[in-house]
Structure formats: C-alpha cells, structure tokens
Amino acid sequence: MKQNLHVVIVEKSAERGVLIEQSLRAAGDFDVSIVDDTHGLKARIADLNPDVVLIDIENPSRDTLEELAIASGPLERPVAMFVERSDEGLTRAAIEAGVSAYIVDGLKSDRVKPILDAAVTRFNMFHRMRAELETTKRALEERKVIDRAKGLIMKAKGLGEDEAYALLRKAAMDQNKRVADVAQALVNSAGLLS
C-alpha cells in the first residue's frame, strides 16, 4: 500500500480552501494541508514537505515557490516541476482553469491526475460563480441607470414611464447601441447640465 500523497493548497480565502479540500477528499485518499498566509511561504512549504502544491495562478506569491526549484541544489529538488510534459492536455486544462501545480520530481502522472482533475473542476466552478456574480451585478447596475434615464425623460418631456422607455429603446435602436449604454450617456450628460 502506497502512502497517501500529501497535497498543500495555498489559498487565502478560507472558504475556497475548504471547498478545494473537499473536492480532493472526494477524489481519493490524500493528506491535505491548507496554507492561507503567503508570508514566509517558501519556509512553510519546505516544512510541510508535500508531494503536490496547488496554488491559484492569479496569486503573485507563486513566484516565491520557484525558489524551491533551486532550494536544495538543482539535483535534489523537493518540488520542482510545473507538471509533467507528458500530460499536456491536463496541464492546459489546469492553466485555463487558473490553477498551477508544483509536483515532486518523478511522481507518476497517474497518481497526480485525480488531484489535478478535482482541482481543475473546482477552479472552473469558482470562475463560473464569479462570472455569474459579475453578470448579476452588472444587470442590477444597468437596471438602475435605465430607471434614472427614464426618470429624466419623464421629467423633461412630461411623459409616462412606458413612453419614456419606448423613446429610450428607439434611440438605442437608431444609434445601434444597447439601451443601457444610451441611458448611461443620457445620465452622464444630464449630470453635466445640472
């Protein structure tokens, strides 16, 4: 029986860290540690002596991990490679999902694959959640701007709400623009005049 692989997750947000950990545990028997503080990152990782380190690609502290490649002499690297070249598809998926992995030199890729697969799925989910959140936020903001523009038109031309909106929509169609953009332009110019 092989020993469990030790995976270290570098993640500032405790919530995200736990979610990644859960995904890993569901994918197999791994020992998982979470590092949530990037101060002294290299020393922490060296102490934990993991087989695999997972870190968000957007985390600038990732560069400190590169030191591990030369930390104990180039011939005995504790955590050396990004990912084995032999598995390019998996690596590409990881990069696109925004997760980078450091893996102990010589570790077989079939032992690493379930870890990366789980991490990739989880990171993709994070992206989707963030994208959804942003879309919702933008929709709400646009809605507010359109309401303000409608109000301006109603006041200036003495129109009802539906008529004001119809005017706004017609202007947008004539100018080949989105209603929200026309509304924003109107609100901006009104701001200048008031």
Binding site: I57, E58, P60, R62, D63, E66, R92, I95, S100
Partner: peptide
C-alpha cells in the same frame, strides 16, 4: 500575475 505564470502561459501556448 507572475513571472512563473507568464512563462507557463508561453510554454503551453
């Protein structure tokens, strides 16, 4: 976001 990421982005296309 970082030099290592940029290098990997280049390596993996």
């Amino acid at each position: 976001p970082s030099w290592s990421s940029l290098r990997d982005m280049l390596v993996f296309g």
